[in-house]
Design a protein around this nucleic acid. Structure first.
Lengths: 150, 150
DNA sequence: CGATATAATGAGAACGGTTCTCATTTCTGG
DNA sequence: CCAGAAATGAGAACCGTTCTCATTATATCG
C-alpha cells in the first residue's frame, strides 16, 4: 500500500538507502519490495515465496529479507509458529498499527487519524520519561477477529 | 508481580480454572505458575527451564505451557528467534502493556494509569467499529532501550 | 572494453525452538 | 485398592530459518 508513492519513487528511495551501504538493489530484492509495497500487511517468507514464485529460491529470499531489514528498508515482527513477517519500514510506508486476527493469523496495517496518533505519541513519550526507558518506536497491537473470520 | 494476590490465592484461581476442564494442577505446572507470578515480564521456555531446574524436563515444560495457555491461564507472545514467551493471563495478572528492549530483547510489563488506559480502551473500541474488526484484546508495544542497555 | 575486485545467488546441509510419539507413571473417583 | 484418565519423560521428528561454499552477476577502474 502506498498509492502516494509510485513504484519508481519507492525504488529510488530504496536504492539510495542501499547504495549508501554498498548494497546492490538486485532483481530479487526489487521483487520483494514490489510485493510488499502492494500488500496491506506484513508477509512471511513463505507467503512472499508463494507470491513471487520459484524465480527467487527460499534461501535467497531469506537472505534478501535479512539484508533489507538490516539496512532499514524493511521492518519485521514475529508471529505464531516461529514465523517472522516483513513489511516496508515506516519511513517508506508511514507509521501505523496492527490488527491481528487470532483465528487466521492475518495482520493488517492500520493508520490512525493524526489527532489520535498524536495522543498516542504523547502517551509513549510520557511513559518513556516515567519508566526511564528510551522509546524508539511503538505500535498498538489489536487482537481479535477479522472480517473473514467473523 | 502481583503482590495483591498471594500465591495460595493464585493457585486456587488457577486450580479452579483447570479443574473445570478436567485438567490437573500438577507439581510441574505449579512451578511454572509460581515462577511466572514472580517475574516482571513474560518468559520463554528456556528461561523458565533455567529458573526451575532439571526437575521439569523441557518436553514436559513445553507441554505444560501449551496446556496452561490453552486453558486460559497463560498468555503468550512471540519474539525474535522463533521464541514464544509466556506470562500469567490478564485475568490473573491485570491488563498491561509492554516495554520491549531492542538490544537485549527483554520484555517488561507496564500498567497504565487508569485514566490513560481508559483512553486507550475507547480508542480500540472505536477502531473496531470503524474497521469492522472485533477486538478481544490489545497491547501497546513500546520498543526502545531499557535501563540496562542505555 | 576488459580485468578484477566485490557482492549476490542457489542448492543443500545444518541449526534450534518446538511439537510429537509412546511407553511408563501418577492421580482420582468409585 | 482398582480401573480409567491424565501427565510424564526421553528421544525422534518437524519446520522455519540460517549457514556454507562454489558459482555467477555487477560495478569500477585502467
Amino acid at each position: 500500500m502506498n498509492t502516494a508513492t509510485p513504484a519508481s519513487t519507492l525504488d529510488r528511495e530504496v536504492e539510495g538507502r542501499l547504495k549508501s551501504n554498498q548494497i546492490r538493489y538486485t532483481r530479487g530484492r526489487r521483487r520483494v519490495v514490489a510485493v510488499l509495497s502492494a500488500s496491506d500487511g506484513p508477509m512471511s517468507a513463505t507467503e512472499l515465496h508463494a507470491e513471487i514464485g520459484s524465480a527467487v529460491p527460499l534461501s535467497s529470499l531469506y537472505r534478501s529479507l535479512s539484508v533489507l531489514a538490516g539496512s532499514g528498508v524493511l521492518d519485521h515482527h514475529f508471529s505464531a509458529g516461529g514465523v517472522t513477517r516483513y513489511e516496508l519500514a515506516e519511513w517508506l510506508n508511514g507509521h501505523h498499527h496492527h490488527l491481528i486476527c487470532l483465528l487466521c493469523g492475518k495482520v493488517e496495517d492500520l493508520e490512525l487519524p493524526s489527532a489520535v496518533e498524536e495522543q498516542v505519541e504523547h502517551l509513549v513519550a510520557r511513559i518513556g520519561r516515567e519508566a526511564s526507558f528510551s522509546p524508539t518506536d511503538h505500535a498498538l497491537e489489536i487482537e481479535g477477529r477479522c472480517t473473514q473470520c467473523r
